[in-house]
Each structure stands twice: as C-alpha cells, then as structure tokens.
C-alpha cells in the first residue's frame, strides 16, 4: 500500500492515521489471545504477571498448571475432555449426514418452497442460544433424554446442521450438474453417482461445514448448561464453572490447549477453502 509520490500531505497524514487505526484494531482482535499463553506458565497462583516473569526469570515459569490439568483431582478435566470429544464427534457426523442431504435437496432447482425451508433449516443459527436452550430442554425433558449424552448430541446436531447446510449449498452453487447427468447417461445409479462424482467434488464444503459443526459443539455451553448432569460435564461447562467461581491458572492451561486446537482447525479450514476454490475454478 505504498502511496504514489504525488500524494498531497493531508492525504498522506490521513493515510497514516488510517494505518494506525487498523493496527490498533488488529491488536485489539488478536492480543487478548496471547495474554493467556504466558500466564498459563506462571509459577504462582495469581493471574497477573509476577516480577519474575517480567524479568524472564526461569524460576517464575513452570508447568504446574498443566500438571494440575492432567493429574489434578479437583477438576474433572479428563472426563470433560472425553465427553466433549465424544459428543462433538457424534454431533459432527449427524450434522454432516443430515445437512449434506438437505443441501443436496435445496440445491435442486425442483425444490418447492425453497426460501421458507432454507429459512427454517438455518433458524437454529439465528435464534438466540438461550431460547434454543430452553426449547431443546423442554423437548429432551419430555423425551427423557435430559442429562444423557444422546440428548446433548441431538441438541448439538440441531445447532450444527445450519453450518453444514450453508457451506455445502455454497459449494453446490458452483457445481456443474451436467457431470452427474453424464454419469447417469453412462449407466451409473444415483447412489453410485453421488459417491463417485458428487461427493468428491463437494467434499471440501462438507468437511468445512463439519469443522464448523465440530467447533460449535465443542464450544457450546448454553444448551449444555440446561441439559448436562454431572456425568455429562464438558470442557466448556468446566470452564464456565471455573470462570464463575474462581479464575484459576489451570483454566488458562486448558485455554492454551484450546487455542492450539483452534489454530489447527483454522489451518485446516483455510486449506480446505483454497482447495474448494481451486476445484470450483476447474468446474467453471
């Protein structure tokens, strides 16, 4: 963004003000995540940078909170992590299957009442979580699924499908339907066509929708707060209770792990997005 040499001074000044504003906004966005990192290695129990840390004294840093996270008896982080992963994986699978099928139907130009149905399918993403939480809780309580893994998985499928529907519909919008017709004319049955032709082409969209569904489930706390019993505690629930009661450095250790996880997810989502753009480029 080099300025042309003929730029007047006042625009030059304005340009630097603009760059400064942008810098501050970027710092505002990203800096909070980096505070957690060093503090999770704090040797002391307080959530402020100790003198030793400011002087980079090696004794001021320790892994004790990571130790506490894994072996600590007070916090059932192990159980929470296990539950979180199980619930998120099943919710993702459910969301992918239901969402992809629906997206396939919605992308067909024969679909009746497309707008209305799309709006309905997306609604769990728009409706405030607290309302979804109350409604789903009423249903699960009636169905006898409150405080069970099944109930939470179903709830997270509800919340996760809109993302799959959106990403897969977006991928299908650039999809050339003549390839499936070509497959059909060559004698392939619909299921075979889907598995061999359609699915590989829309796979990036499916996986990135799945990533959204996974993160939604993995990070979801409002609905789980209504549904979970002691046995179904998840990482977000543990963090929520921890943050409400006492902000302990162990939470920061967990938070650091979560940031690493989200970085990994971000990288895979970006790679997928690029691959998807490339694939769709070929189709055009």
């Amino acid at each position: 963004m080099a300025l042309p040499s003929y730029t007047e001074t006042r625009y030059r000044v304005w340009h630097y003000i603009y760059i400064t504003i942008c810098t501050f906004v970027f710092i505002f966005l990203i800096a909070p995540l980096f505070v957690i990192f060093p503090l999770s290695f704090n040797a002391e129990e307080f959530l402020v940078f100790s003198e030793g840390m400011k002087n980079l004294d090696p004794d001021a840093f320790s892994l004790r909170w990571y130790n506490d996270m894994i072996y600590g008896t007070k916090n059932p982080w192990g159980l929470a992590a296990k539950n979180s992963f199980i619930i998120a994986i099943f919710a993702t699978i459910g969301s992918i299957i239901l969402g992809t099928l629906a997206a396939l139907g919605l992308s067909s130009r024969h679909m009746p009442y497309k707008g209305l149905i799309m709006a309905t399918l997306i609604s769990p993403m728009i409706v405030p979580l607290i309302i979804s939480g109350v409604a789903i809780f009423f249903f699960m309580a009636k169905a006898g699924l409150a405080a069970t893994h099944t109930g939470i998985v179903l709830a997270h499928i509800i919340l996760g499908t809109p993302f799959v529907v959106i990403t897969v519909t977006a991928t299908l919008s650039g999809f050339d339907h003549s390839v499936t017709r070509a497959a059909a004319s060559l004698g392939s049955n619909p299921v075979n066509t889907f598995m061999k032709i359609t699915l590989p082409l829309i796979l990036p969209g499916v996986i990135s929708g799945g990533l959204f569904a996974f993160v939604t489930s993995f990070d979801e706390v409002v609905v789980v707060l209504f549904l979970a019993g002691l046995e179904n505690t998840t990482i977000p629930i543990q963090m929520w209770t921890g943050l409400r009661e006492q902000l302990s450095p162990t939470i920061l250790a967990v938070a650091t792990c979560l940031i690493i996880l989200s970085t990994l997810i971000l990288i895979s989502a970006e790679l997928l997005r690029r691959r998807s753009e490339r694939l769709r480029g070929i189709n055009r």
Partner: peptide, 11 residues
C-alpha cells in the same frame, strides 16, 4: 475459531 469462553477468560 477460538472458544468463546477462552476469549472471555482473556478479557
């Protein structure tokens, strides 16, 4: 992509 709770904790 980062957990809402993590971001709230950092604030």
């Amino acid at each position: 992509w980062t957990s809402l709770l993590v971001r709230t904790a950092s604030w």
